[in-house]
Simulated assay, not measured.
Amino acid sequence: MRQTWRWFGPEDRVTVQTARQAGAQGIVTALHHFPPGKAWTVDEIATRQAQIAVASDAALTWEVVESLPVSEAIKTRSSEWAEHVAAYSKSLEALAESGIRTICYNFMPVLDWTRTDLRAPLPAGGTALRFDLASFAAFDLHILRRPGAEMSYEQDTLAAAEKAAAAMDDTAKKALVHAVIAGLPGAAESWTLDDVRAALGTYSALSPDILRQSHIDFLSEVVPLAERLGLRLCCHPDDPPFPIMGLPRTMSTLADFHEVLGAVDSPAFGATFCTGSLGARPDNDCVAIAKALAPRMHFVHLRNVVRETPGIPCSFIESEHLSGDVDMVGVIEVILTEEARRRAAGREDAEIPMRPDHGHDILTDIDAGAQPGYPAVGRLKGLAELRGVMAALARKAA
Rank of each mutant, 00 (worst) to 15 (best):
E385M: 14
L336A: 12
Y374H: 08
M328K: 03
L141E: 03
G186D: 10
A164K: 06
A370E: 01
F273L: 14
Q21I: 06
A160E: 04
L336C: 05
A166F: 01
D361I: 02
C314T: 13
D194T: 15
D357M: 07
R212S: 14
C286R: 00
D285P: 01
I100H: 02
R281C: 05
V70M: 03
V177G: 05
V196K: 03
R130G: 09
T364G: 03
R197A: 15
R379I: 10
V42T: 10
V14G: 03
A134L: 10
E83T: 13
P121C: 07
H178M: 06
S323E: 13
L393I: 15
I27R: 02
V196S: 06
T272N: 15
H84I: 05
A198M: 08
A24E: 00
V70N: 02
R249F: 10
A370Q: 03
T102Q: 01
A384N: 07
I216C: 12
I143W: 05
G230D: 01
L380K: 01
F131E: 12
G230L: 01
A187Y: 02
A94V: 01
T127S: 13
R395S: 13
P248V: 15
K38S: 10
A350L: 10
R379P: 01
T76V: 13
W191M: 07
L31F: 04
P121T: 11
L206M: 15
M390T: 14
A271G: 04
A134E: 06
A124F: 12
H258C: 09
L176N: 05
M354V: 13
R115D: 07
E150H: 09
P208M: 15
A292G: 03
Q213D: 14
A94M: 00
G388F: 11
L158F: 05
E338A: 14
D285F: 01
G276I: 09
I100L: 04
E221L: 12
D365E: 05
T202G: 05
V287T: 07
V16R: 00
T61C: 03
L92I: 01
A397F: 11
E150L: 09
L122S: 08
A340W: 01
S214F: 11
R232S: 15
P313W: 08
P237H: 13
I27D: 02
D170N: 12
G186C: 07
L200W: 08
C314I: 07
M328C: 06
P267A: 15
A39S: 08
Y153D: 04
T4E: 08
G373Y: 06
L122R: 12
R20E: 06
P243C: 12
F139A: 10
V177Q: 06
P375Y: 06
R303Y: 02
S204E: 13
F316Y: 11
V389D: 11
E320G: 14
A55L: 03
H33Y: 08
R48K: 07
G346P: 03
P237E: 14
L229F: 01
R387N: 14
A345Q: 10
M108S: 14
L176G: 04
R307I: 15
A340S: 10
F316P: 00
W5A: 12
H360C: 12
R130L: 15
G378F: 10
A24H: 04
A350T: 09
R115Y: 14
T47G: 08
V264F: 04
S214P: 00
K174M: 11
E44C: 05
R342Y: 03
A368N: 04
